[in-house]
């Protein structure tokens, strides 16, 4: 308060001394302002998806196969850990996708959230040379597929790839989108993971 009164008094004091005092006080004020950066708050990366698990159970319940993709540091430099298992020829599997954020404690299940916002999400399964077919086994409120649950049928022996894509805000009524064709879907990609598929 004293400084302030002094400052104002000198604004009205018409002389060179007054002018210089004004300048000097302002410069001192500048130096009093902090010069250290504020430590950032480490964010709770709630929206991060670190883990995708694609679990296949054969229709006779005899076989359980797990594909997984795990990348704990998100966009960071750490390479993801990818796990593949082999499929059997001419077999039908029930597929179940799980998404998790394992970077926070406790880890959160994101598949629930996707299911709740089913109208705004859809998984696409793009098969390359593996000779398998993937059919949707779930529906959102409008009767369109979400793709968390699927039915997979294998064919002859083959080696190829399966790319699992999650689109946010796709046009779910677009041409052939509900059949699993991604071309007319649009929207933003939240997940795009490719697994090697061996059918033996």
């Amino acid at each position: 308060m004293h400084l302030k009164r002094y400052f104002c008094a000198h604004l009205l004091y018409v002389s060179m001394t007054g002018y210089f005092r004004l300048v000097v006080f302002s410069l001192i004020f500048m130096y009093l302002i902090g010069c250290e950066p504020i430590d950032p708050v480490i964010p709770n990366e709630e929206e991060l998806i670190t883990t995708l698990e694609f679990r296949l159970v054969s229709s006779d319940q005899q076989d359980t196969i797990l594909f997984s993709f795990k990348d704990l540091d998100g966009d960071g430099g750490l390479s993801p850990v990818i796990q593949n298992e082999k499929l059997k020829v001419h077999t039908t599997y029930n597929g179940m996708l799980t998404l998790r954020n394992d970077a926070i404690n406790p880890s959160s299940d994101i598949s629930m959230e996707v299911e709740e916002e089913g109208n705004a999400h859809q998984f696409f399964y793009v098969v390359n040379n593996a000779g398998i077919s993937v059919k949707y086994a779930d529906k959102d409120a409008n009767g369109n597929p979400i793709g968390l649950k699927t039915t997979i049928t294998t064919g002859n022996q083959a080696t190829g790839e399966l790319t699992i894509i999650l689109r946010h805000n796709p046009d779910k009524f677009g041409s052939s989108v509900s059949d699993g064709l991604i071309d007319q879907a649009g929207g933003e990609t939240d997940i795009e993971v490719t697994f090697q598929i061996d059918v033996i």
């Binding site: 902090g34 010069c35 504020i38 430590d39 950032p40 708050v41 964010p43 990366e45």
Partner: peptide, 21 residues
């Protein structure tokens, strides 16, 4: 000149630009 730049912790995302002075 003195500049203080701070990320407001409301994004739930790792910041692209750090805090600096």
């Amino acid at each position: 000149n003195n500049i203080l730049n701070t990320n407001i912790p409301e994004t739930d995302i790792l910041p692209l630009i750090p805090n600096y002075a």
